[in-house]
Design a protein around this nucleic acid. Sequence first.
DNA 1: TCCCGACGTGTCAAGAGTGGAATGTGGGAG
DNA 2: CTCCCACATTCCACTCTTGACACGTCGGGA
Lengths: 209, 209
Amino acid sequence: MSLRHAVLGLLSESPASGYDLMKLFNVSLANVWPATQSQVYGELGKLTSAGLAEVSAHGPRGRKEYAITDEGLAELRHWLAEVPPSGPHRDDSLLRVFFLGVLTPLEARTFLLERAQETARLHAQLRRVDEETEWDDDMLSVYGRLALEYGLRMTAAQEEWARWAAEEIDSAKAREAGNRVRNRHRKTAAGTTGDAPVSDPGEAPAPKE
Amino acid sequence: MSLRHAVLGLLSESPASGYDLMKLFNVSLANVWPATQSQVYGELGKLTSAGLAEVSAHGPRGRKEYAITDEGLAELRHWLAEVPPSGPHRDDSLLRVFFLGVLTPLEARTFLLERAQETARLHAQLRRVDEETEWDDDMLSVYGRLALEYGLRMTAAQEEWARWAAEEIDSAKAREAGNRVRNRHRKTAAGTTGDAPVSDPGEAPAPKE
DNA sequence: TCCCGACGTGTCAAGAGTGGAATGTGGGAG
DNA sequence: CTCCCACATTCCACTCTTGACACGTCGGGA
């Protein structure tokens, strides 16, 4: 339900056409809230119907420039200040981590190290943006820099985690090898370790909204 | 497209009914890949049609227990090892950061500190899970612990960032106040500093995949 | 005995999001 | 002057996700 607010937010900075908005999405929100043409134009229509935006000017090729209305600005403010952000969402990469057990430890390790490299690449890219931008004291600079710093910290933490996790697999493998040896030695006792129905959930107990 | 793989992953550990899977989703994948009944049952149907899973047993109340097939396991492995994870996704909270400029600095600061508290809460919760769980050396424990540690690190970094950002707003506000004073003092010179059309996009230039 | 709560399956409508394609106009490079 | 590209909008068909609703059955406690 937040595409609406992304559009309102961009309109709050300056009026724009659907085409303009697409460009803005691609350069500024691409990593945070990607959107497609169909979505943006559709949303502009809905926004206009709802009275949150209006056509403020007509241009050359059927261009319609949209501007945010007072009502729209109020909605944006309300969303920002009073609507609680939704919790953590789907994470493709993390989902894989849960099932890494179906791969060999070596493959799992490779996967994690690839993740680390990928995140490092992203981190470096953000660093470049940070360095190449002149940061003013105006609103956009202050908050844009905040968002960038967020990306910087998250990618750094992710890379560290991935490297740590790769090592962790190595040591688990080592430990298990040790166990195997130990088990072989007491093989006479109760068969295999028993198929205790592996039921450990392993991850956070659904915060239940 | 990954719900399919989440289901396959769970089935790879042990056969289960749709009902069982729902429980598994709620306790183990809730924070990583939430799913609803309709989705799970629907996916089981598709999986069966596609030959990636099959009904392995019938139980009391029309219960159908599904098991992963060799083909399904191959698909799961392929996904894990060879399909590149998709990049960063939509982030509600971060989107707001971009538009924090429409609020007063005070409101923005409050928003960030609330975020910090919320993340801290989540972090503490994960810590509890970590402490209350006995970690073995089996697959599930090793990889579950990896995922948990990921959550731990991300929430910690997020909280730190939010607190840092709140302070940052304070100092920007202070700097701006300073500028205002300075401007007032050289008001005799070339009028106001001029309304240079604030156009800095502010954030990362779409990595383009 | 009866009835409730857990088990268990299924369908539907509506809203997001994806990806592509059709259509047309205006201005500037050559 | 012409042609091409950037500008600009709109529609479509599809999948994914959400949230409800509808249905039926087994087991055990009052």
